[in-house]
Design a protein around this nucleic acid. Structure first.
Length: 315
DNA sequence: AATGGCCCCAACCGCATACGA
DNA sequence: CTCGTATGCGGTTGGGGCCAT
């Protein structure tokens, strides 16, 4: 047969813990250590279910808990991790020392949700509620390629403002892409089929007409969208995958090779919040390293062994 | 000062998975 | 392999505190 029941449902207290109960639990765990929650209440002289003891210890009594308000950095890290992991509170908590999944979950529901909504971002999808780019399927459109019409007045933004980027959702994971400080314009767009695309480059001033192709349907023979329209348009096909640093570089975000003086600008940033960004790739071959996001960042002047980028905690 | 509404968070509940007999 | 419990996780709730009226 299986194990015996974890606790007697009868004769157990419920509701808020008293100071005495807390002391009993702390003292018991100090002497005997964590674990064996089933037998703990009886051994510690507590009229509580083992499950309740575990929760009380993990969420409130553990000595390594970091009490107090969340910092801005923690806020942005939670948002960032949530965009990658979804409601996996325990995984998110694992990246925030001293914080519990319950605490983060509560904080998300009471603070961050509201914060994102005030930014015009859907907290579940991490996508902008209202797109800033209109699409038309006009006569010039061929195949599944769509022409995105950008209005110069309100669809392009100076990069040194915090308003000039779009929150991009790429196949279930959310990334924020925007411009480096030297870039003058940025463009991002979503298509009606739920796929999102973003591109940024300085030569777009020659035209407002940006050509964005759907992945796998471009005229190119490969999945990567590499065709180039007149006027210096660039197409970027975003297809995110994540791997551990030890693995080979991720090549699934494909960029057209930028030529001449534009090359130096070809840096993609991940935005963690509206005002903070960090580079997620450095090479023009489009390789992406998410080492920072996954908590593998190094300290000091070291470079990431995967992408060779100097580690930047925050720009 | 009293009251009602809202917010926050600790704790509970139910489910999924791990694990032991 | 099956069965039943232990554990862990995420969603939800309820009560205390705060604030506006």
């Amino acid at each position: 047969m299986g194990r015996s029941p974890c606790c007697e449902k009868e004769h157990t207290n419920k509701g808020a813990w008293t100071k005495e109960e807390d002391e009993r639990l702390v003292n018991y765990i100090k002497v005997n250590g964590e674990g064996c929650w089933r037998s703990l209440p009886k051994s510690a002289g507590l009229q509580r279910c083992g499950k309740s003891c575990r929760l009380r210890w993990i969420n409130y009594l553990r000595p390594d808990l970091r009490r107090g308000n969340f910092s801005d950095e923690e806020d942005e890290l939670i948002i960032n991790l949530h965009s990658l992991l979804g409601n996996k509170w325990s995984l998110i908590a694992a990246k925030l020392p001293g914080r519990t999944d319950n605490e983060i979950k509560n904080y998300w529901n009471t603070h961050i949700k509201r914060k994102l909504i005030s930014r015009g971002i859907d907290p579940q999808t991490h996508r902008l509620v209202n797109s800033t780019i209109t699409t038309t399927n006009d006569n010039a459109t061929s195949g599944t390629t769509k022409n995105m019409l950008c209005n110069n007045d309100n669809k392009r933004n100076k990069s040194n403002t915090s308003n000039g980027f779009q929150l991009m959702n790429v196949q279930g994971s959310t990334l924020h892409f925007g411009l480096g400080s030297n870039l003058e314009y940025e463009v991002s767009a979503s298509t009606s089929d739920g796929k999102y695309y973003c591109t940024s480059f300085p030569t777009i001033t020659r035209s407002n007409n940006i050509n964005i192709s759907e992945r796998g349907h471009s005229n190119s023979s490969s999945n990567s969208v590499v065709s180039m329209e007149q006027g210096g348009y660039k197409e970027i096909n975003l297809d995110l995958s994540i791997s551990l640093p030890a693995s080979s570089k991720i090549n699934s975000i494909n960029h057209e090779i930028i030529k001449s003086e534009e090359e130096q600008y070809m840096t993609t940033y991940q935005y963690i919040g509206r005002g903070t960004r960090m580079p997620v790739l450095s090479s023009i071959d489009g390789s992406v390293c998410l080492c920072y996001n996954l908590g593998f960042q190094k300290k000091g002047n070291q470079q990431c062994s995967n992408c060779a980028m100097p580690i930047v905690d925050q720009l």
